[in-house]
């Protein structure tokens, strides 16, 4: 086996260990690399920021796994700081599990003086994906009978103000599911002509960015990068900003390995040709 071939056949244990080290080092000692806030995140921030305070309603949809957690922790504060009225619902099972974890960090009552039922409400998980979105946007009083804690929605002051889709100023969703991300565009934007902003995994961005380019999504939070942008813009540094250093380090390592892989491949091919001639 030539040196080139040995290089190409680097054991994956070594590669993974190097990647792990590249993750751990910047987590312990952050490089504090500069942040360049993306236009899509800026548009999200400005869309929320441009909403007038208090009497307006705002909806945020929750769904997902561990990755967008920093994104979720970052967005409610911007909305609570502006004293927006927030109706939260989950269109996937995990959403109802994520809600207490997020609110434990955000602490709306303590940090922003918000009151459950008057300033924000959580409807829990509503099955049906697009069917649920259409039903809740169209007539929340028919679609939902009680909130996550079992309180009849007729007794929730915030929901008494909601008459129909015209009551909403913004639909903001965070998801790790492509179907849900498209669903909110179909239902909230196309059907009810509402302003929509979306946050999702980076791997979903290439397929969903056309909605942003076409004006259907007014802003996008692109995975951990979008979350870091939000932390930067809201002046609340947290996990996402720390994560950008880790991502920069690991992706540099990946780029180096891609270069090594290509160089060794072409090197092995050239040396094989030379051997034949």
């Amino acid at each position: 086996m030539s040196t080139w071939e040995k290089l190409a056949a680097l054991p994956r244990e070594i590669v993974l260990t190097i990647v792990l080290i590249a993750m751990i080092v910047p987590a312990i000692r952050p490089f504090r690399l500069p942040i360049m806030v993306g236009k899509m995140s800026k548009d999200w921030y400005n869309t929320v920021d441009s909403l007038p305070d208090s009497p307006l309603r705002h909806r945020i949809q929750l769904r997902g796994l561990s990755n967008p957690r920093p994104m979720r922790r970052r967005n409610p504060p911007q909305m609570f700081e502006k004293h927006l009225k927030i109706i939260i619902m989950a269109t996937q099972l995990e959403g109802s599990m994520m809600y207490p974890l997020i609110m434990e960090k955000v602490k709306p009552e303590k940090n922003y003086g918000a009151e459950y039922g008057k300033d924000y409400v959580f409807l829990g998980y509503i099955a049906g994906a697009q069917t649920a979105m259409a039903a809740v946007l169209g007539d929340i009083h028919t679609a939902v009978k009680e909130d996550y804690y079992g309180t009849p929605i007729d007794q929730i002051p915030l929901l008494k103000e909601v008459k129909g889709p015209e009551s909403y100023d913004l639909v903001a969703y965070l998801t790790t599911d492509g179907g849900i991300a498209e669903g909110w565009v179909y239902q909230a934007y196309s059907r009810y002509k509402l302003t929509v902003v979306g946050g999702f995994l980076s791997m979903m961005t290439p397929s969903l960015k056309p909605y942003y380019d076409a004006g259907a999504l007014k802003g996008i939070l692109d995975g951990i990068k979008g979350a870091a942008d939000m932390e930067y813009m809201t002046h609340h540094p947290g996990d996402a900003l720390r994560a950008t250093d880790i991502l920069s380090a690991t992706q540099t390592i990946v780029l180096i390995f891609i270069a090594i892989g290509n160089i060794s491949y072409w090197g092995a091919r050239l040396s094989k040709k030379e051997g034949e001639s």
């Binding site: 993750m23 990755n67 980076s202 791997m203 961005t205």
Partner: peptide, 16 residues
């Protein structure tokens, strides 16, 4: 490239 970034960002959450 976005997929790789997503997978790393998922795991870095666990590292933290």
């Amino acid at each position: 490239g976005n997929t790789i970034m997503t997978k790393f960002s998922m795991y870095q959450g666990r590292i933290i």
